Simulated scan of single mutants.
Amino acid sequence: MAGLSKKKPIVLVVEDELLLRAAAVDFIEAAGFSVLEAASADEAIEILEARDDIRVVFTDIQMPGSMDGLKLAQAVRGRWPPIEIIATSGHVSVGPDDLPARGRFVRKPYSPAQIASMISELIT
């Protein structure tokens, strides 16, 4: 089928701090992915309920609202099992049992290359 381009995988960035979210959106797009963004776990759930094409959720752990990033990760794994999860925090230590199966943790500050590489690894 000539003319059809391969769709870029979609990553949902969930981060309550505007500058950190904007930076993550920029470097994930620069790595070749499409990006959606949410300022809270509640907003992320609304987006996930409305779409069926999200491949990865990249979430901060400490966020205001009805759930933090760890609860969001559990909700995503329970309702949307194929979606990959990357959680990050500069304040919370995460053990192997804190995230659901296949969930990854990256401590802040992280490098854009580290996150881009991890996303690529998870969706191939």
Rank of each mutant, 00 (worst) to 15 (best):
L19G: 06
T59V: 12
I86E: 01
T59F: 06
I123S: 04
Y110P: 01
L70M: 09
W80C: 06
G69I: 05
D97P: 01
P96Y: 05
S111G: 11
I45M: 08
I123R: 02
K8V: 04
A24K: 07
D16V: 03
F33T: 00
A113V: 11
E29T: 08
G103Y: 00
G69C: 02
L18Q: 15
A44P: 00
L72F: 02
S66R: 14
D98P: 06
L19H: 11
G65M: 05
R55K: 15
I61W: 08
L20S: 11
I86K: 02
A39E: 07
L48E: 04
R21N: 14
R79E: 10
P64I: 14
A73Y: 08
I83Q: 05
A23Q: 12
E84Q: 08
P112Y: 05
L19Q: 12
D97E: 11
D60S: 05
R107Y: 09
G95R: 09
P100T: 06
L122D: 12
Q74M: 10
D26P: 03
K7N: 14
I85D: 03
S89H: 00
L4C: 03
F105C: 05
V13S: 00
S89L: 04
V94S: 07
K6L: 15
I119N: 02
A50N: 11
E43G: 02
R77H: 14
T124I: 11
G78V: 02
V76K: 11
I119C: 02
Y110Q: 06
P112R: 14
L18S: 14
D52K: 14
D52I: 07
L36G: 01
E29H: 02
A50F: 01
P112K: 15
P9F: 04
E15C: 06
P96W: 08
A30W: 03
P100G: 06
S89N: 06
K71R: 11
A39I: 12
D26W: 03
L72C: 02
V92E: 08
A116M: 06
A116I: 09
D53F: 00
K8C: 03
I86C: 08
I61G: 00
R51P: 09
K7P: 15
V57K: 01
A38Q: 02
I83E: 04
A116G: 15
I45Q: 02
E29V: 06
A113K: 08
E49S: 07
I61E: 00
P112M: 10
F105Q: 04
G103Q: 04
A31G: 11
E46K: 14
D16N: 13
E84A: 10
I123K: 04
G78S: 15
Q62Y: 05
D53C: 13
I85W: 04
V14S: 00
R104F: 01
R79L: 10
K7Q: 07
S120A: 08
